Simulated scan of single mutants.
Amino acid sequence: MVSAQMAFADEPAVEQYTYGSHPDIAKVVHQDQVPNVCGVVPIQMVYLDHQGQKHIMEYSVMGNGCHDN
């Protein structure tokens, strides 16, 4: 049986996006869907850089659940 820690040992550390950073994004592999909440929420994007290295970036977005009534 493989432990969860060992199963994710090959995963890169999650990088926090900061304003002004310029990530080397060659291809987006996966991006979380923006949830239906009213407020700012963190989502993650998995991408490959131009050398083929996998990265996981977390950043904040406004949820899709805010509506003017």
Rank of each mutant, 00 (worst) to 15 (best):
M1T: 00
V2Y: 14
V2M: 08
Q5N: 00
Q5E: 10
M6L: 08
M6T: 06
M6Q: 10
M6E: 09
D10Q: 12
P12S: 09
P12V: 15
V14T: 15
E15M: 04
E15F: 00
Q16C: 05
Y17S: 04
Y17R: 08
G20Q: 13
H22W: 07
P23I: 01
P23H: 03
D24F: 09
A26H: 12
H30V: 07
D32N: 14
D32W: 06
V34S: 12
P35D: 12
N36W: 12
N36E: 15
N36G: 07
V41Q: 02
P42W: 09
P42D: 15
I43R: 07
I43C: 11
I43D: 04
M45T: 08
M45R: 13
M45H: 13
V46W: 13
L48M: 05
H50D: 12
Q51R: 10
G52R: 02
Q53C: 07
Q53M: 08
K54I: 04
I56K: 06
M57E: 05
M57K: 02
E58Y: 05
E58A: 12
Y59T: 02
S60F: 06
V61C: 07
M62W: 12
M62E: 09
G63T: 00
N64P: 00
N64W: 01
G65K: 05
C66K: 11
C66M: 11
H67L: 12
D68W: 00
N69A: 01
N69Y: 08
N69P: 01
N69L: 00
